[in-house]
Simulated assay, not measured.
Amino acid sequence: MRRAGGLADVAGRRFDMLVVGAGFAGAVMAERFAADAGLNVLLIDRRPHVGGNAYDEYDAAGILVHRYGPHIFHTNSAEVFGYLSRFTGWRPYEHRVLADLGDRQVPIPINRTTLNLIYDAGLEDEAAAEAFLAARAEPVDPISTSEDVVVARVGRDLYERLFRGYTRKQWGHDPSELDRQVTARVPVRTDTDDRYFTDSYQAMPADGFTAMFGRMLSHDRITVLTGADFAQVRAAVDYDRLVYTGPIDEYFGHLHGALPYRSLRFHHETLDIDRLQAAAVVNYPDEAVPHTRITEYKWLTGQAAPRTSISYEYPSADGEPYYPVPRAENQARYKLYEGMADACPDVIFVGRLATYRYYNMDQVVAQALATYRRAMPR
């Protein structure tokens, strides 16, 4: 990787590829076009660093913190895990999350332990837990919203306790106004498995995400320019093809109106205690609590330190775009932009923001690898 000191370092130069955005999508595309296709790549990002939202760094207490909230790697794809393993070793890690109900904390996703803690139900096996849930479930037909998904599976009481308030804070909409995919992503279990994910591969990059990105981009044919404005760069350099990973509506000047994205604000603290929480992440479903969750990073890194670093997470309608908002009218507007993108054969749109889809990290990597294979020069 060649670091450009500023726009003047690349102005007037010619590149085979200009890649906009140095998160997972952009970094994978840059690495493949350089290392596999042998092309000269300029990778830019408007932030002052690579890694996108997965960026991590050591804070003043020496703890590796995720500046944009917790990023937990998990996948069922051997291809994705194998590809990323070229650039990092791994620390085995299985993620666990608790929901704070005021008087107690319970495992999320819902499992048999959750039910026993909330209801003192004394459920001893999966059949008993399934019967317990079935007795509370409310038939919904058709199931079209996020509220429908939860109420039809676990009933209205658990929906109100664990899902409704959290979802309203996270998305700025009631679950009854959101596509079913939002809550359909969260399983309901009748056993006592309290892991948040059950994927075949669950681990954290041994040296952190930023170090992994550094190795991914350490190729002589890749030049990286951070703190860069796309409009200024595209006017200053020559390039054959463009890879764009930013918001698709922004690329087209919001011609069909702005696509709604949900943003996040983080408040980081270091505390003079060894541990704060009983798990890496504690969710706060109560709407009266302004933050959605608290993350304690030592759980993720496995570090031993006398102090602990945490972050509070506050969803917002304004700020850096993080999540496309899954509503039918938003998808219809995206389709207008998708039609415009299809008419741009020399521009490759890839990633969460450019394709207006909520992807996990491994899904972004898989999408980028597949997109590269389709776009690879013959």
Rank of each mutant, 00 (worst) to 15 (best):
S77N: 10
D9K: 07
T75V: 08
H95S: 14
V281H: 04
V106Q: 03
N53Q: 14
V182W: 02
H66K: 11
T192N: 12
V97Q: 13
P326R: 05
I248C: 06
A128T: 05
P48Y: 03
N283P: 12
Y196L: 11
G102Y: 03
A332H: 07
F230E: 09
G82C: 09
D342A: 14
V224S: 08
G214W: 06
S176M: 08
Y251L: 06
V10I: 10
K169W: 03
E147G: 13
R3F: 10
I108Y: 11
F230W: 08
R373Q: 12
L133I: 03
E138Q: 14
W171C: 02
T113G: 12
L18T: 07
R46C: 05
D194G: 06
A128D: 08
D238H: 11
R164G: 01
F73W: 13
A8P: 01
L264T: 11
R67H: 13
T145N: 02
P142I: 00
Q232Y: 03
R185C: 04
F33A: 02
M17P: 01
P377A: 06
F197D: 14
A279V: 03
D272C: 15
V140Y: 01
S85Y: 07
T190I: 07
D238W: 05
Y239H: 13
G351C: 09
Y322C: 07
F73P: 01
P285V: 08
G165H: 04
M212D: 13
V19I: 09
R333H: 06
R32A: 12
Y68H: 15
A54Y: 08
A317F: 02
E147M: 13
A134R: 10
G246P: 01
D125L: 04
G102E: 10
W299V: 05
R333G: 07
S144W: 03
D199E: 12
D362M: 07
Y83I: 05
D59C: 12
E320T: 09
R2H: 10
R215V: 01
S146P: 01
R234I: 02
D45F: 01
M216T: 08
G89R: 15
A25Y: 01
Y93H: 15
P377I: 04
A135P: 05
R221G: 12
V80P: 00
F197I: 06
N76V: 03
P290S: 15
M376Y: 05
L123H: 04
D249S: 11
I108F: 13
W90D: 14
Y83S: 12
A278P: 01
T308E: 04
Q277G: 10
E338K: 15
C344K: 14
A137V: 03
F15E: 04
E124D: 14
S263V: 08
T190Q: 06
Q202W: 00
A135I: 00
Y334T: 03
